[in-house]
Simulated assay, not measured.
Amino acid sequence: MKTSSKQQIIEAAGVTFERYGFKKTTMDDIAFAAGKGKSSLYYYFKNKEEVFEAVVAHEAEILVNEINSSLTTSSSAVDKLTNYVTTRMKRFVERGNLATALNDNFLATFSFIEKIRNNYHDFEVEMIAKIINDGIQREEFKSIDATFTAEAILTCMIGFEVPLLTKSQTIEDSVSKIRSVINMFLYGICT
């Protein structure tokens, strides 16, 4: 299947934004990385912000597909929640532009970033609450407020992003830490 010019630009821009960051990346850098003329970029996008928004949307779509795929590997709600958290956190440890958009305070000044953050937050709460409700129905989880619990789990994951990003030496180290966090979510710290 041939990749469209717009998709080539989005993929090249993703690599360029990761390498140089949003602030330092120019439309010239993106055009060069995509092997296109700058006029080709402006045919599809008004400015660098629009390109970045498309890159983040593309990465979010990839992550959503990875999460959905990980959820189909088990029927247990406990395993689904574990797979969800592991897949999501592993992607954030690997960085990428989606993680940057959700965590970078400089980018928060752009209205499109706030929209992305809100949409992604709502998606995550909904997905986690669905897993929890499924677990309640299957009697794997106590009868709890699924939406509140989903918000709490998401808040914990967001709180762990920076320590995982900055202190993990390898992806395996990160996954081990993520699994420890999941065990705390599910089983607490009491003996």
Rank of each mutant, 00 (worst) to 15 (best):
E53T: 02
S39Q: 06
N118D: 14
V181F: 13
I131R: 00
A34M: 15
L107W: 05
D79I: 04
E18G: 00
D28S: 13
I10R: 03
L71N: 01
A77C: 13
E61Y: 04
T16L: 11
E49L: 14
I144V: 14
V55W: 09
A101V: 02
V78K: 01
Q8S: 03
S4V: 13
F106Q: 13
N83L: 09
T149L: 14
K46L: 05
F123D: 02
A60P: 03
T191V: 06
L98W: 08
M1Q: 12
L71E: 01
S76E: 03
R88A: 04
V78I: 14
N183F: 09
V175Q: 07
I131F: 12
K6M: 13
N65R: 15
A57V: 05
E94K: 13
M184F: 08
K115V: 09
S40C: 09
T149R: 04
M127D: 00
V162G: 10
M127L: 15
S75T: 06
F32A: 15
T191I: 06
L102M: 15
M127Y: 02
D28G: 09
A150G: 04
S69A: 13
T72A: 06
A54F: 14
T72Q: 11
S69R: 09
F22A: 01
T25Q: 03
I132R: 01
C156H: 00
K167N: 09
A108R: 13
T25H: 04
A57N: 06
M127K: 15
I189F: 07
K142F: 11
G21V: 09
T170H: 05
A57Q: 12
E49T: 10
S174E: 04
E59V: 02
N133K: 09
L186T: 02
N68H: 04
I171Y: 07
A13R: 13
Q169C: 07
D29M: 13
I171K: 05
S69Q: 10
T25W: 04
G188T: 01
F45R: 05
E94W: 08
K23Q: 14
A34Q: 06
K90W: 03
E50D: 10
G37F: 11
V78N: 00
I113H: 03
A34L: 15
Q169T: 07
L71A: 10
N103H: 13
V15G: 00
A57L: 15
Y42M: 08
T100E: 10
E172M: 02
I128M: 14
